[in-house]
Amino acid sequence: MRDELYIKEALFSASKKISMDSEVAKNTLLTALSSANMSTNVAFTPVIGAAVLARPKFNGTNIAATTAAGVTVLAVGAINPTINRIDYLNDITNKPVELVVELSTNSGVEEVYAQNESGVKYYGYLNNGDYVINIIDNGTYKVEVVSDVGVKNSKQITISNIDKYGPTISTYSFDGSLLEITYTDEMSNIDINSAYGLVNGSKVSPISIDKSSNTVVYELNEASINVFVYDELGNESNYFIEKK
């Protein structure tokens, strides 16, 4: 609605200056449409003896105005939305990152999407006046709006706060029946108290836990063990370790 009123005002103001000279009329109209951020094709139809000024009429992307000089002007233009800004949270998460895309206008929008470097597109949906896109993987994305006449506008963003993986084992060693494991996690904090093992299907707990180094020790009298641990986001890791 705001764009429509602006275009009407620009055309109405410009029409007051148009004379019977068709070149003057054309140039004045193009100036008005340019100020309204519209690309146009313009056709002029003389109206013999006309002296009535009609306000511009808006119909989709077609605008018609009759000037005081008796010239009917038809302008066929396109509203081309652009991206004002993209908002999203930077907190580490194991859930999709929600992009909130604000456009200059929601008129004339064909589609809004984020495209990764492999060409995969994640399409947005309209919610409370903005477009929302859910991103499930880290990477660089081109966020793009396409108008209903195919004009594109884009911005590039990088997502790096999605953590979908549990802690990894940095080192482990045996000392007789004792198995010592040290974990690391590049993105999230480790919930080292969640560590446990499975031996022949039975759950076993570490005999010691060092939170400062994320190290646990198991007493293992069997040939192998499955060890589990979570990070604070709830991502689990599972490793199978055999005695050598």
Rank of each mutant, 00 (worst) to 15 (best):
V143K: 09
Y122N: 13
G197Q: 06
G124K: 02
N90D: 15
N189P: 00
S107W: 03
V112K: 04
T171H: 08
I190H: 08
Q115N: 02
T105D: 08
V97H: 03
S177V: 10
L179N: 05
P167G: 07
S205L: 11
G166A: 08
D130Q: 13
V146H: 00
I190S: 10
Y196I: 01
G197C: 08
S147F: 12
N116Y: 04
K121L: 04
Y88S: 05
I209D: 10
L89M: 05
D87F: 11
K164D: 10
Q156I: 14
N106Q: 04
S188W: 01
N134K: 15
E111D: 07
F174T: 07
I190Q: 13
K164Q: 11
Y122Q: 09
G150V: 05
S118H: 05
G119W: 02
I169G: 11
E186N: 14
D191L: 02
D185Y: 02
V132K: 14
S147V: 11
V120Q: 10
G129H: 02
S104F: 02
N138Y: 07
S118W: 03
Y141R: 06
K121H: 00
I190R: 09
M187G: 01
V143Q: 08
I86N: 06
A195C: 11
S107P: 00
P206L: 04
S194E: 02
G139S: 09
T93Q: 05
E144I: 14
N127L: 12
V120D: 11
I92T: 12
E180Y: 05
T171N: 14
K164G: 07
N153C: 09
V132S: 06
S188N: 15
P96A: 06
S107N: 13
